[in-house]
């Protein structure tokens, strides 16, 4: 049995507390496009572990403070 999980993130909140950092600024800090940041923030794209670490590093926090997950039922 495999559990369905949904990756969640607090990027919007972290951007707010980082002096309202723009998506473009975060994109530049992490070396990806703004579109990718938009997709990650909206939960439309789960980033690689490397990018996840870079995003956490951009905010100066641990990866667990940026990304989490929610269990959504079970899948066979």
């Amino acid at each position: 049995m495999k559990k369905n999980i949904e990756i969640t993130n607090t990027i919007r909140t972290l951007r707010f507390f980082a002096n309202e950092m723009t998506q473009q600024q975060l994109a530049e800090k992490t070396g990806v496009s703004r579109q990718t940041i938009i997709a990650v923030e909206a939960g439309k794209y789960s980033p690689s572990l490397e990018l996840a670490f870079r995003i956490a590093d951009a905010f100066g926090v641990q990866i667990g403070e940026v990304f989490g997950y929610e269990t959504k039922g079970e899948n066979k």
């Binding site: 990806v32 496009s33 579109q35 990718t36």
Partner: peptide, 10 residues
């Protein structure tokens, strides 16, 4: 240049 960046999602 920033808008033309190609990354892992691309």
């Amino acid at each position: 240049e920033a808008s033309m960046v190609e990354d892992e999602m691309d």
